[in-house]
Amino acid sequence: MSRSTRIMMSVIYWAFVVYVFVPLILMIMMGFKDSKFIGFPIKSWTFDWYLAVFSDTEVLTVFGYSTAIALLSTVVSLFVGTWIAVLLADRKFFGRAVMFGLMVLPALVPGIISAIAFRIYARVLGIEPGMFAIIWSHAVHNVPFVCLVVMARLSTLPKSQREAAQDLGADPLVTFVRITLPYLRPALIGASVFCMLLSFDDFVRSFFLGGYQPTLPVLIFAKLRSGMSPEINAISTVVLILTAFLGIWAERSMRRMKKET
């Protein structure tokens, strides 16, 4: 590659970085604006919006609610996803391809269709809109992500380790708990952070399956529709910092896992 193309490529890369970061940076800046109206220019700065957010019981309640949903749905996804991954990982059985296809299905259905399909199904099963319905839809939606990550990790587990454990008299359950599970640890940590973020950030399913209590993205959405104030920026910034850090941490631990093998 010639020098000029190399320079051009790096300019494109950095331009893309700017495109990706600038909206978020502007959004963060706006949270410090000392005025009720969102918009440039910013003449004076303040921390008041953050103080308002941290003393706003509604926002804090919603934050706790979203966190609880994220944690509980992640537990379900981890359990089911790992189970399916173990089934699919090293066995060849009739219908394996069909099973794989069905496993990834929730990840491929476009958001709005997934949301209303869950809405209808919840009605059929008699589940009222609310916390349980949201947890359930998030759990189902996140299973494929757990499963794919765990399958990738399982594919690098030497079969001999499990065989050795079985030769020494361990039954399949003990083998799983003492050999497979410790090996899966980094994958499970990565997958659980990933699931929590997907759940915490999810809007469309929470919107259609939620009752009167909104989740954080639904609350931000409602506030944006009823009129903007820098308070929304402060909330969003807190969410942004939390999710970005968790995401990076999980991504790093998963990439390290890939390198190990």
């Binding site: 990706v20 970061f21 909206p23 959004m27 999810d202 809007f203 944006l224 920026n233 999710t243 990076i248």
Partner: peptide, 16 residues
């Protein structure tokens, strides 16, 4: 980093 941030927050950023 930005892609870990949720749909609604990023949409809001575009509005600004």
């Amino acid at each position: 980093i930005p892609f870990w941030v949720g749909e609604i927050v990023r949409t809001f950023a575009i509005m600004i």
